[in-house]
Design a protein around this nucleic acid. Sequence first.
DNA 1: GTCAGTCATAGGTTTTGATTATGAGCGTTT
DNA 2: AAACGCTCATAATCAAAACCTATGACTGAC
Lengths: 309, 309
Amino acid sequence: MSVSLRQLRALVAAAETGSFGRAAVRLHLSQPALTVQIRTLEEALGLTLFDRSARGAQPTEAGRSLAQSFGRLLEELDQLVAGAQEQAARRSGTVHLAVLPSVAATLLPVALARLRRAHPGIRVLLRDAVARRVAEQVKAGDAELGIGILDGADAGLETEPLFEDALVAVLPPGHALAARASVSPAALAREPLVLTDPGSSVRALAERAFAEAGLTLRPAYEATYMSTAVALVRAGLGIGVLPATAVDLRMAPLLEIRPIEAPAMQRRILMLRRRGASLSPAADALAEAIRQAAGIPDAGALLTAGGGS
Amino acid sequence: MSVSLRQLRALVAAAETGSFGRAAVRLHLSQPALTVQIRTLEEALGLTLFDRSARGAQPTEAGRSLAQSFGRLLEELDQLVAGAQEQAARRSGTVHLAVLPSVAATLLPVALARLRRAHPGIRVLLRDAVARRVAEQVKAGDAELGIGILDGADAGLETEPLFEDALVAVLPPGHALAARASVSPAALAREPLVLTDPGSSVRALAERAFAEAGLTLRPAYEATYMSTAVALVRAGLGIGVLPATAVDLRMAPLLEIRPIEAPAMQRRILMLRRRGASLSPAADALAEAIRQAAGIPDAGALLTAGGGS
DNA sequence: GTCAGTCATAGGTTTTGATTATGAGCGTTT
DNA sequence: AAACGCTCATAATCAAAACCTATGACTGAC
């Protein structure tokens, strides 16, 4: 028979207390049970570990030495187990999260604040990236959770809708188009436009929507960062075609926001995870916080939605 | 329920093989048994450790990390157990041995040679000391085994007789007394004598024997080391009164050895161990080798003799 | 659509471990 | 010297854990 943890704990306790009886008390066992554990351990090792006498059980040299080594090992083990249970209890843990920059600037701070309040021990490693990179990182396992968009279904990913993000027209103060409740693509096409980089998902969305309306998108300015784009609009250099979430009106109170009359001007922001990969407790807590921040009541809470097929 | 070694081994094997089935084979278990171990471990930790699919079981991040940590721990544990079993098998181990210098120079080399032949892995840490120190070291546990002599019984020690060591007269080449088969204490008292230090057990023995014969011992020379005493005799400076074992005739072929006609000129060389303290396998092997070197057939081999009361 | 491979579940048996009760050895105390 | 009190060991019994075989359900792949 091989050794067992019970035997090792018995050995350590007996060596430290110098008595089988006291060791049994410490381990919440009866004395005979402990005696048997020690004996079977001695048989497994082939060594006498204790010299029994009427005044207790003195560990032999081998017993002392092994008790010390095993004790150290047991301590490490208990620590590992405790650490794992900490993670399970959501009192610690780390989540790698990939997220679109626009969401990172808007929804995410709210979600992270919620998470911190509910589970202050959980650490979030944040990577903002464009939609394609978000999906890639989640699929590769580099990020356990992602917030992004997906064109079609993706067999490697499970998705859960968070909210709809529409592209809106962002008008500089006093612009003529602000008189209307909404603006048409055709009207936009006549104006100098501020857009994001080609390759960004926002840009691709705008181009598609314009193409459906038979128009060609000719941006006057392209910005990589949303804050840059907003600044360009505020300076009166053009009309922004930007995601609604990205425009923080607190930062730019004089700008006017108007919806664009094109159904395709919408993108569905999704929470992404690798298909078949369970979430760590920390990631689960984060997902919950994100859902709540997005205004989704946490009903079943389990992600089951397909890729959108 | 707390974690068990079986669970940890199951986790490590499954994480390394990527399959419950293959892990079960490695551990000589059925697949359901392994599945259950993993599940109960997951329940104990509160963590999902594997993502099960039709293509095997992929460890989660937590599973991977824990498998690695636990694997390291298990390796250390197995190594400790193997080390203990090595000791039990007498393939390794260390014995602290306290021994009289005279025995160390005569009987012991034979015993150690035997021991090395039978159990080459056993290391002997040797301390030669006078009889009182030998007994002290054994009683204090500084030496697991001792070879020495004991005046009366000692409650703290168990003894086992090894052989009788007589004090003999060591005569320089061509000495007149060599004509007799034995010499009397009275004859010795008329000669210049070479003895050991006062305080040595040999010296005490000689003084007692002379006192019983109504004589006073007046040594011409006192040497601490036996080799010194023998050299003095060889130089013709006196007659040695020394333990028979200590005089190596191969080193001093011209010397003559004669028994002394006094019954008290005998000392019983004993093997000593602490009462109630079991012997380590290494010490047991050494004890056996010592017995054989002393010409004692290793019958029951267990030390049971009392202190001589 | 079948097939091969995976893990999960169920039923029944063996093994392990625990408890209580009791015994035996030993040192101390009366 | 006898009794006591402390130790660990043993025995009988019982509960729980662990295992195996058989079977099921699911998933990819051909």
